[in-house]
């Protein structure tokens, strides 16, 4: 890269920053944050004050605190655009992406609390160990398509049939839904309940027009779908606006009812088997 091109990029960045400051109004004021500091042995809320301006998000303030007064503050982040799902935390008690939570939407006359997700073990400060989720994903029966529709080994699908599952594909795996779910958060049922994220993942597989596997038995037993009591908290906190409860979990619950709790259907199945 030539020096002139590098210089041009730097200047372009400076102009963008100036525009951003101008659009933000540039009015700076002090705000207080209570940030959870600690590790797996315990921790406490530490108070920090920093200068904030319009247009800033919580992650900006945390970075500012990190550079000004808490260089060892641990925070996980990546895209700052609400797409990587890294900066999940609890802001004023509600699970949110720090990069998508604007300070002008918060009441700054009181301290803003920033805590790590409570459903997972803390590693340090705002960073939690979410590896349990990756282990859970491995337990779900994989996508098993039917035989290809045409000789070249490809399939044909109607857009109307994939519309429903495409909603679930928006998930960025921020695990805010897992964090807010009281079954995991308060009752610690990590060994018997896969949580809203993976019920949505299962729904995407189960409702897929090409998939051939019936996952209702594993949903009922190993995945503990019966633990969900439809609080809809997962839907409320989803930054991608996925209607987790109504479009994924309840339809799966109904499929489980079809197979395991509907005596009329069981009777019909019995007669069908006998007639065959």
């Amino acid at each position: 890269m030539t020096a002139s091109v590098s210089q041009s990029i730097v200047e372009s960045g400076q102009r963008a920053a100036e525009r951003s400051d101008a659009s933000a109004g540039g009015v700076a004021k002090k705000a207080t944050f209570k940030v959870w500091r600690g590790d797996s042995n315990g921790g406490k809320l530490e108070t920090y004050t920093t200068e904030v301006s319009e247009g800033m998000v919580v992650l900006d303030a945390i970075h500012q605190i990190q550079s000004e007064s808490a260089n060892d503050l641990a925070v996980r982040w990546n895209c700052k655009a609400g797409k990587c799902g890294s900066c999940s935390a609890e802001v004023n008690g509600m699970p949110k992406l720090m990069c998508m939570t604007r300070l002008n939407d918060l009441d700054l006359s009181e301290p803003v609390t920033v805590e790590p997700m409570r459903a997972f073990p803390p590693v340090r400060d705002l960073v939690t160990d979410v590896s349990w989720n990756f282990e859970v994903k491995k337990r779900i029966t994989k996508f098993t398509p039917r035989a290809p529709d045409v000789a070249d080994g490809t399939w044909r699908m109607d857009q109307a049939d994939v519309d429903r599952v495409q909603e679930f594909r928006k998930c960025i795996e921020c695990f805010l839904c897992q964090d807010v779910c009281h079954v995991l958060r308060d009752h610690n049922k990590h060994d018997s309940f896969i949580g809203p994220r993976f019920l949505t993942y299962t729904a995407a597989l189960e409702m897929h027009p090409l998939d051939t596997v019936d996952r209702t038995a594993e949903l009922k037993e190993a995945h503990g779908i019966g633990y969900c009591n439809i609080t809809k908290c997962c839907t409320k906190v989803c930054p991608e606006g996925i209607t987790i409860t109504d479009n994924a979990i309840i339809p799966l619950k109904e499929r489980v009812v079809d197979e395991h709790y509907d005596p009329l259907r069981a009777l019909v199945r019995l007669f069908r088997r006998k007639s065959q």
Binding site: M94, E115, R118, W132, D191
Partner: peptide, 18 residues
């Protein structure tokens, strides 16, 4: 086997929500 260590469980009505 899952050994999930969480931050202390909150009591009835306890929250950081404002």
């Amino acid at each position: 086997g899952v050994d999930v260590v969480q931050i202390r469980r909150r009591g009835w009505g306890e929250t950081m929500r404002r």
